[in-house]
Design a protein around this nucleic acid. Structure first.
Lengths: 212, 212
DNA sequence: AGGTTCCCCGATCGAGCGTTCGATATAACA
DNA sequence: TGTTATATCGAACGCTCGATCGGGGAACCT
């Protein structure tokens, strides 16, 4: 049982990380339920049974992918928020962080948005908490933006938060990194669309700086 | 083989429609691959083999759900667009139609956004065409809005289109019909968020009319 | 009465699944 | 040299799945 052990060897951790990356790709391609551990064993070049030395079950595999990715994106955001005072710049940092992380970990992020319901019980609970933590942080930033700008209440805060996440998360359905729209520009587009709107405020950019 | 027959009896069509509705619910709950025809047989009160009189395969079932729903939402939109001249009102009709249809056919729409990749070959091709048709129609409306309003090019049209669909489709991840936010108001919120932005244009509503 | 079409069923098949088990090779430690 | 922990493997188990097949009853027509 790999329950409470901490082999803590670098090699072990590295191989686990590699398995998680490959697993995320397979889950992203075929979906969690349709993907098989045998797929993973083939692509990782390991035997089927040998994999179970690194995790206890397929569901734990799914949990670890989501757990680690959510923690990473949250930690990266908190670092980027340090020292930023302007509410609008905080929101800007959030969008760029989320979109940037998304494009660099496309498979994992797709698994997070696509296979949330595939988790059950304790696993589900813990991922729900992380998601809530992230969502709450985002909503608080939106509250700040509303307080310190001319923003009226065009929509309730939770609706606005969900709309923002919808815009950002939907990327996986159409965006291919390395296309003619670079990631930074895509993030800036989405930030301006969300803050200023498609029709926009005539005569004044929402951030006061030029595009690109 | 139910290949080219047209039983065209009302009873037959009604039972098929009922099966599709139940199947959409099961697919929405458990995901396409995890759901089983046996689940459908239990919930429909029919034998397992008896179901195959109404469809040839599980994948055809998935195809029919997506095909019929997409055609319905497209047809409803085209009707609502008739006689509307203002570009902004066309966009408004699109958002209300999409969100409204979404909330009334939550299961089917979830299947459409969630299980698109589960289709293969000819089925996949035909759904791709329908999606493209819908997406193109939306993009043309956005082009009109840009032409006839003060809208600058805050984002490329395809990015804006995808962002809009992201906002609308993400609903399935958080919205529960019958909550304290009625569907019409939710649609209006999203419409205003998208056109005017979260911060909004001070002093002027995007449509020139009051809320509600 | 005989024939045909529509509708439905129980039984079953072959395939694939997640997981387990016992064995084994290697390397570190006593 | 024996012991132990780490890491890997082939084979198998028990189960669920989508799909098929042959049969049969009810309704309708000739």
């Amino acid at each position: 049982m790999a329950e409470n052990e901490l082999p803590s060897s670098t090699e072990h951790e590295e191989k686990l990380e590699r398995l998680l990356t490959i697993a995320a790709e397979i889950f992203a391609e075929k979906g969690y339920h349709h993907a098989s551990i045998r797929d993973l064993s083939k692509r990782a070049g390991t035997s089927l049974s040998g994999l179970y030395y690194y995790f206890d079950s397929k569901e734990e595999l799914l949990f670890m992918i989501q757990d680690r990715s959510l923690r990473k994106v949250l930690a990266a955001l908190r670092i980027k928020l340090e020292g930023v005072d302007s509410a609008e710049e905080k929101l800007r940092a959030l969008v760029h962080n989320h979109v940037g992380f998304f494009s660099e970990n496309m498979a994992a992020m797709r698994v997070i948005t696509h296979e949330y319901d595939s988790l059950e019980g304790e696993y589900r609970t813990r991922i729900t908490e992380l998601r809530r933590e992230y969502s709450d942080l985002c909503q608080e930033i939106l509250r700040e933006v509303r307080r310190f700008t001319s923003a009226g209440d065009v929509a309730p805060l939770n609706v606005a938060t969900s709309a923002l996440f919808g815009m950002m998360n939907w990327i996986y359905a159409w965006y291919t990194p390395g296309s003619n729209v670079p990631v930074e520009r895509l993030a800036e587009h989405l930030y301006r669309l969300f803050t200023g709107g498609f029709i926009g405020r005539p005569g004044k950019s929402s951030t006061g700086r030029k595009a690109g």
